[in-house]
């Protein structure tokens, strides 16, 4: 009886950990709920309920004993889609009966602390290349590509670095927009690139909260109104932070 009870708690732990990793790394709410319920089901718990919001997960399972419920708080959210897809494949393997609770838990724990696959420099470089591409996509001329790339790389560098140092939300985006905008303006002033608007827009593209926008819409459609509205608000505030950063630059131009 005791062993049985313990195992049920293990199942909950595996489900919750899977949900936590997914949510922390940018999965949609309905996917998190779905994965958690599937994992519980695969381990032999037919009925479970999960309530997922961007800041916490509540999960309860129904068994012969009284209902058990656990809560996990989500405080840090980043975007690491590799982890989302890795949890997804672990959940598939659980469903296929390839993993025991202990194995699954160990794999998830390992995944949770895994570093980003692409190095810091690679990400900065990717941001720079995205900035450069957008100058052309937005019908700018080629001489604006290089300044936009440098300013975009700097903006993304600042977003990543400042969010490590200052935990205040939206401050890193504000600082990044400020720095990216200032650098773009300096380039424009010394004649490096002739189209200030496109350089700035290109430089700020890596900051756009694309994942939040997509997830907000998908959550709202799936009926997860709390998550959808919260993510929409986060996206809106991020956009406002970027806008304020640029506004500061423009008042001095």
């Amino acid at each position: 009886m005791d062993a049985n009870l313990e195992e049920k708690y293990d199942i909950m732990d595996v489900s919750l950990l899977a949900g936590k990793i997914m949510l922390e790394n940018g999965a949609e709410t309905y996917r998190v709920e779905d994965t958690m319920m599937r994992i519980a089901q695969a381990f032999g718990i037919p009925e479970s309920h999960s309530f997922v919001t961007p800041t916490g997960i509540m999960f309860s399972i129904e068994t012969d004993e009284p209902t058990k419920t656990k809560l996990t708080r989500i405080s840090r959210r980043t975007t690491d889609l590799y982890k989302v897809s890795a949890v997804n494949s672990i959940s598939r393997r659980i469903s296929a009966g390839e993993l025991t609770t202990i194995q699954a838990y160990r794999e998830l724990k390992e995944l949770q602390t895994a570093p980003m696959f692409f190095s810091f420099m690679m990400q900065i470089f990717a941001a720079a290349s995205a900035s450069g591409c957008f100058v052309i996509l937005l019908k700018g001329s080629w001489d604006n590509v290089l300044p936009a790339m440098i300013a975009g790389g700097l903006a993304y560098f600042i977003v990543l670095k400042v969010s490590d140092v200052v935990p205040t939300m939206f401050f890193s985006e504000f600082m990044a927009a400020l720095a990216g905008g200032t650098l773009s303006y300096l380039f424009y002033r010394i004649g490096f690139g002739g189209d200030l608007d496109r350089i700035i827009v290109g430089a700020l593209i890596p900051l756009v909260p694309g994942l939040l926008i997509t997830n907000a819409v998908r959550d709202l459609m799936a009926g997860h109104f709390i998550s959808g509205l919260a993510k929409g608000a986060e996206a809106l505030l991020t956009a406002l932070a970027i806008g304020s950063g640029i506004a500061v630059v423009m008042t001095f131009i």
Binding site: L81, Y82, A126, G210
Partner: peptide, 9 residues
Amino acid sequence: SFGVMFNVP
């Protein structure tokens, strides 16, 4: 590039 920034496999 955005894929790299979001750490897509």
